[in-house]
Design a protein around this nucleic acid. Structure first.
Lengths: 191, 191
DNA sequence: CATCGGTATCTCGATATCGAGATACTTGGT
DNA sequence: ACCAAGTATCTCGATATCGAGATACCGATG
């Protein structure tokens, strides 16, 4: 999806990118898809400042690539991304690895119907178990099984290895700067 | 559509975050969800270096928030995100706003079956038209209608306004730094 | 203890996507 | 001209998700 951003005041559209400028300080030599996207919009709508796309389109596109990469990484542990989402929430909760469906759906941002379905399928694979919630007969507790814990731990280690690899081209200092700026952008949403 | 997605993942050590550090230079005072995610993983798996999550989890989460925000912004122009994806690809192509389904599906990263379905629905709403491809009788050309062009132009302006707003808390210099670092991360995927 | 609003979970019909296969046409080689 | 391999698009069954509604239970109030 395209998240365009540019401001146009004239020729600003190419400011941050290494777009058409021939000088290119000492930076990477290559244009990415977003550079092309922005160039196309700038050609078609020279009246608009599409600078915001420089940041936000890249966030969206990178996230999509990360989704695919994670799917591959998890596949080596026979887990789908949605399975990791649920199991990792339980894992992070700590022993005895129990959460209510309600807690799980707020953490995974899916609807209750979806979560019921997911728990059913995870239970069928013996990765979680459904227990009655003592103290609230409406509710249930979803508990990570022993095999579930091992699978999610392995998948998480694989994920970290992959992510470390993806970040390899960026210095420690830049990673921290990046993390800080991203936090600033996320905060208004996270409350 | 949409990339729905859902993933929670990641949490990094506490390196870059303003996690538990009491000093906090002059930065924002608040922890985000990823800080909490990282703290939980660090508690449960102190043997792992979860630092990559500081960056990549934030990218994923921010992208999800952006998806929801865009859905809202597009709704004011009676467009779904997937509709904007297709229409904007046609719009960027420039007059006469024609692309083959193949070009459209490489740009939107969906399968051919999905694209056929999308074109059907867009054509039913008179936002695009299917034309025979002169020069290749297997193929068709998808052309943006006049109302389609107006709708996508309006939606794009709305999107830009929203994105400019979201980036408001970040200085111009930081935006450029952010865009540059994100490009570095995306490049290995984009080829 | 009866009631009523709120909460937790599940049910179920509608829908968008995927993915494998079908169909029709093109292209290069002989 | 013919044929095989490749390409462009569409078809269709399976599936995961959403979202509205149903059911069962909690808790405070009178």
């Amino acid at each position: 999806m395209e998240t365009p951003h540019t401001h146009d005041l004239d020729a600003v559209a190419t400011t941050a990118g290494n777009g058409a400028k021939p000088e290119d300080p000492g930076a990477q030599a290559c244009r990415d898809e977003v550079d092309r996207l922005i160039e196309a919009w700038h050609r078609e709508r020279p009246d608009l400042d599409v600078a915001p796309l420089e940041v936000l389109s890249r966030v969206s596109r990178l996230a999509r690539h990360l989704d695919r990469a994670r799917r591959t990484a998890f596949a080596e542990h026979d887990l789908e991304p949605w399975e990791f989402d649920v199991l990792s929430a339980l894992r992070r909760a700590g022993a005895p690895y129990q959460l209510t469906p309600s807690k799980l759906l707020t953490q995974t941002l899916v609807t209750s119907g979806t979560m019921t379905n997911r728990i059913d399928r995870l239970a069928a694979k013996d990765l979680v178990k459904r227990l009655p919630d003592p103290g609230d007969r409406r509710g249930v507790l979803v508990q990570l099984s022993d095999t579930g814990r091992k699978r999610v731990d392995g998948a998480f280690e694989g994920l970290l290895a992959q992510e470390r690899d993806l970040l390899g081209s960026i210095s420690m200092a830049d990673r921290e700067a990046l993390a800080g700026l991203l936090r600033t952008l996320v905060l208004p949403f996270d409350n």
